[in-house]
Structure formats: C-alpha cells, structure tokens
Design a protein around this nucleic acid. Structure first.
Lengths: 201, 201
DNA sequence: TTGTATACTGTACATTTGTACGGTAGTATA
DNA sequence: TATACTACCGTACAAATGTACAGTATACAA
C-alpha cells in the first residue's frame, strides 16, 4: 500500500501544497500557480513533479481540463475504520478496513489516525457507548488519565490509563468491570481523540 | 440573513449543481461545463445565473481565473453552533452563533441543522457528557424514545422524550434528575442526530 | 560506464476558459 | 405603459491553462 515515504521531499512538498490549496480554497491550483508558489521559472518543473505523483499513485489528472488535479485519498489521507475493537491490531491495518472515515485535518502532521467501532459497555460512564466511533491517534505511549486503546493478543480494548500506587492500570469506566494491571502482554497502540455517535435516521 | 428562499428555482438548481461538483469532484465547474449540464447552448446563460448568485451573496467569483467559483457557506451551508444549551432558542439563530460547524451532507435537503454545546450532566447515562457537541435537526415533533432538544422560556435542554401512562415526559438519563411532564410551556425544537466529543489535544 | 530518476529552464502551441457584447422573450411590478 | 428581473441564444476575443518537446545538471544503482 502506498504511503508518503515513497516520495521525495520535493514531491511531498508539492503534494502538500496541492492538498492545502484544495482544502483551504476549494480550488486545485493551476500548473503556473504551483510554479509561482515554489519559485519555478518554468511550468515544465511542475509537469515533472505532477507526473511523478501520478505515477506513484497519489494524484489523478484529467487531460485538457484546467485544475483537474485529484488527490487519491485512499493512499494517504483517509483514516481506516476498523470494524470493531475486537479486531486484533496487527492484522487491522491491512485487511480489516471496511470503510473510510475522512478527518481532513491533521493529515500531513505525520501522525497515524484511525477509527474504531466500539464494542461493549466498559466505558459507558465516560460517555463511550457500544457502537460509538472513536478516532484514535496511533502512539505507543500515553499519560495517566488519557483514554487509550490497548491490545493484548488479538483483542483490543478502550480504557482509561491510570496510575495507582506506582503501577499502571487499564481502568474501565463501568463499575461492573475491574481495573486491569498493565503488563507486558498489553501494548498501547493509541489514544482516543474524538468520540462520534450517530443517532438520527 | 440570506437563505435559499431568495433564489429562483433555476438559480437554486445551478447553485446545487456547483455545490455537488465541488463536493464530489473537488473541482468547481467551468462555465461551459455548467452550460453542458443544463443543456444551455450559450455560456451567456450561465453568466446570467452566476451573476445573480453573486449579487445575492451565495457565490464569490475571482476574476480571470478558471473555475474560481467559491460558495459562501455562511449563508447556506453551515450549521450554526450555539454556545451552550442554556441559550434561549428564539435568540439563538441570529445572535448567539459563535462558531460554525460544517456538516457537508444533508445540505440541500431543506432541513435545518444546528450544533449545540451541552451543558450539565442530565444525559450522562445516555453517553452525552457536559461540553459534548450535539448536532440537532430542527423539527417541532418527535417520537417517543428520541433524544430531543426542548425549550422553555430562555432555557433549552437535551432529554429523552418518553411516553408514560399516556402522557409525554422529558426524561433525563441520570437518576439524579426527575422526569419532567411535557406541558405547553415547552416546545420541542429538534432531535439529536449526532454526538461529538473531542478529547485529545 | 550506462541507464534511470530527480529537478530544474525555456519555448511554442492548442485548448480551455472567462469576459464582453448584443439580442429575444416572458413575467411580474410600479 | 414602462421598468426590471429572469432566462435564454449567439458571437468574438483575450487571457489562462495544459501540453509537448528539447535541453542542462546531479545523484545513484546496475
């Protein structure tokens, strides 16, 4: 699967510029606008970069149409939405993606973001209900107090990370369940940034 | 404040087409593409419509730039975000808007959508926490079981609508609070479609 | 060494596109 | 009746834009 690392720095800059223009002005740039932004004296330079970006699968350009530069989001921009929290993380990234959730900000920040469908009621007291969608930022460390996604084997769960008596625990926000001591068999894969729930028709 | 009713049907159609093109293809249409879509034999027809849409405040067009048609969203597309639920609805729509929340879908459906910042803990058991953002569809009727926004005087609250013994009640999802009989002093102004909570930095 | 990718300059040309006119017709409003 | 707005057609032109081709230079891998 494509990712930004196959691009040179310059190509990434050009892609970022195109992306920003589309986002902020709702209007893809013309070749000469791109050239002007980077200080190129020639449109040929832009042509080269665009050709590379097309070839590497990041752009689609329609012939003979002004500004018809399309960013192929699947390869870079989208947040893979995993079916349920149960899905084991190691396999998630590649196969279990069944939907795409677009969060257009924080894209070129370099961080990895993904969505997760919550299963189970272990976090209801924190307002995270079954079937809610949580947006998760991938990171292997977290601070006490944050809501984290932790994986053990094939199982992933959403819990509070808390420090009790010098030790770290995964704490459910539901008195029905007990805190779990954070051992080496768990790995924290990210923290919850946003909770989204759809109710209406 | 502008709204779609100041437009003729044709102008609305043109605006909708432009909007859809931008949304679906990320590329505003050229004049001739618009003409082709509507079967106009002349670009002059398109010029007339665009001129009207600009004059009425729905579009902004940059001169001498291809496809530089910008939709002025404030006037049509955005969801006004009200500061807190406490704000009385009658005044909300005009003055108390302090932010705009973009939900790009369901725009031309004609329904009115707005965002509301939740204050208070009366719905925590339904996973709606203080400071959550709820997206509300304006409607004056609702069905039992739905989460509604009800206004009484200057006060607005989010509650379950339930039918108990033939009568309707506004029911908090928190045992700390009691159900409220739905009398004529309340009016239901909408139902909650989505709950959004931002956690991460 | 040869080939290939990157990263540019420069020029010429065809197409796309926006713009500026002028004209016709229907309808609603003053 | 006059005026204005809507809703089209048609034409001509200049500017914006995409495209094609040729060239230079560097770095890196086969």
């Amino acid at each position: 699967m494509n990712n930004l690392s196959t691009l040179t720095k310059k190509q990434r800059d050009v892609l970022r510029f195109i992306y920003n223009e589309i986002k902020s002005r709702q209007l893809p740039p013309s070749l000469r606008e791109i050239a002007a932004h980077f200080g190129f004296a020639s449109v040929g330079s832009v042509q080269d970069h665009l050709q590379a970006l097309v070839q590497k699968g990041f752009l689609k350009i329609t012939e003979n149409k002004s500004r018809a530069i399309e960013i192929i989001k699947k390869n870079i921009f989208s947040i893979p939405l995993i079916g349920t929290v149960q899905a084991g993380m190691p396999t998630l990234a590649v196969e279990n993606i069944d939907e795409y959730l677009n969060l257009d900000d924080m894209i070129f920040s370099g961080v990895d973001i993904f969505g997760l469908r919550v299963k189970g009621d272990s976090m209801v007291d924190a307002g995270i209900m079954p079937h809610d969608l949580v947006v998760v930022r991938s990171q292997s460390v977290a601070e006490a107090g944050e809501i984290v996604v932790a994986v053990s084997g094939e199982e992933a769960t959403v819990k509070y990370l808390k420090k009790i008596g010098g030790k770290y625990y995964l704490v459910p926000a539901n008195p029905k369940y007990n805190p779990i001591l954070l051992t080496s068999e768990f790995s924290i894969i990210g923290i919850v940034l946003t909770v989204i729930r759809k109710l209406g028709k």
